Computed example of a mutant assay.
Amino acid sequence: MAASLLALLDDIASVLDDVALMTKVAARKSAAAADDVAVLTKLSAQKTAGVLGDDLALNAQQVAGVRADRELPVVWGVAKGSLVNKAILVPAALAISALAPWLVTPLLMAGGAFLCFEGAEKLAHRFLGGHEKEHEAAPGADARAETDLAALEKAKVKGAVRTDFVLSAEIIAITLGNVTGQPLPTQLAVLAGVALIMTAGVYGLVAAIVKLDDAGLFLSQRASRAAQAAGRAILRLAPWLMKLLTVAGTAAMFLVGGGILVHGVPALHHLAHGWQAAGGLTGALLPLLLDAGAGLATGALLVAAMHLLHKARQ
């Protein structure tokens, strides 16, 4: 009986040793997987930094024309829409990569063409007209003005979310390229991590930018002369910064959209790659000019085609 009990205890001790060993191995593998996720997330964030800058410029300009007390609600509305975009794009990207990887490039090129179209449409409205004339003041004008402001806010949020979808798709596509061949949980963790980091980074900065004038006003009313000087400087800088971001946002539409199109056309992609390999100022400038030129040409053709289609329907 005693021998049987000792044998049982020995078996239990062996099982516990096995459990401890397997737990230790699993913990090491989990730590290694976590390290891989962290490294891949950092790498993907670095590679998408350029798109992040374009995303920032594009979204900051969307707030132009919104009342000061509605700026943050508009930014928050776009941020929520961006999260919804990424919640759609992450599983869609994983599914397309697994089932139909050949679809990635055509879908990105369609998104790039859309960005080019939006940029060209903005330029057409700015330089060729196209906006309706302002209505003269009339009875009930105040009520209509409130309705118009609400409609403007809604349109800005909708347009910004639509544009964000294309930029988010490019961010997800770049990130997916970095995690190809990794286990599915790692891919999902990296994609979700980059999506959250980019959304928080972009819209946090946008919120800070649109509230620069409020920060300047606050500082200008402080007792300290240094604070007052800093506040006045910010108040002078804020309008110019918003104008710069408006121009940069429109330019980013052509650069990002054109860059996607150039990357999708082998001959243009090889040409741009050859210029980049040359290095120096030429290697940095010529690919950008190629992207911008391709984006501007594509956008102009699409705007002209839409104009002719509209005429034909009439």
Rank of each mutant, 00 (worst) to 15 (best):
A3S: 04
A7W: 01
D10N: 10
D11M: 02
I12Q: 06
S14P: 03
V15H: 09
D18A: 13
V19H: 11
V19Q: 15
A20L: 14
A20R: 15
L21N: 06
M22S: 12
K24I: 04
R28A: 14
K29A: 12
D36E: 08
V37H: 05
A38C: 10
K42C: 05
S44C: 02
A49Y: 02
G50A: 05
D54H: 06
D55R: 08
L56Y: 08
L58G: 09
N59C: 10
N59W: 00
A60Q: 04
A60D: 03
Q61A: 14
Q62S: 14
G65W: 07
G65K: 04
G65M: 10
D69Q: 15
R70W: 10
R70V: 08
G81C: 09
L83H: 08
L83C: 12
N85Y: 00
I88L: 14
V90S: 00
P91I: 01
A93V: 01
A93Y: 00
A95Q: 03
A95R: 02
A95F: 08
W102V: 08
V104C: 09
P106F: 09
G111N: 13
A113W: 07
G119C: 10
G119L: 12
L123R: 06
L123N: 11
L128M: 14
G130N: 12
H131E: 12
K133Q: 15
H135L: 14
A137E: 13
A138F: 13
A138W: 12
P139H: 09
A141W: 15
A141R: 10
A145H: 14
E146D: 12
A150T: 04
E153H: 00
A160P: 01
A160I: 02
V161P: 03
R162E: 07
V166K: 06
L167K: 01
S168E: 02
E170F: 01
A173N: 02
L176R: 07
G177Y: 01
V179K: 06
T180V: 09
G181R: 12
Q182L: 08
L184K: 03
Q187P: 01
G193D: 03
A195S: 10
L196M: 09
L196P: 03
I197Y: 13
I197Q: 11
I197R: 11
A200Y: 05
G201P: 04
V206A: 00
A208C: 01
D214S: 14
L217A: 11
F218K: 14
F218E: 08
L219S: 08
L219P: 04
Q221D: 10
A229C: 11
A230S: 07
G231E: 06
R232Q: 01
I234K: 00
I234E: 01
L235V: 10
R236P: 00
A238K: 01
W240A: 04
K243C: 02
V247F: 05
G249W: 01
A251I: 12
A252W: 03
G264S: 07
V265F: 05
V265H: 04
P266S: 02
A267D: 06
L268V: 09
H269W: 05
A272M: 03
G274L: 08
W275Q: 15
Q276F: 07
A277N: 12
A277G: 10
G280A: 06
L281W: 06
T282S: 12
A284D: 11
A284T: 11
A292P: 08
G295S: 07
L296K: 13
G299A: 14
L301F: 15
L302G: 07
V303E: 04
H307Q: 15
L309S: 04
L309W: 04
R313Q: 11
R313V: 15
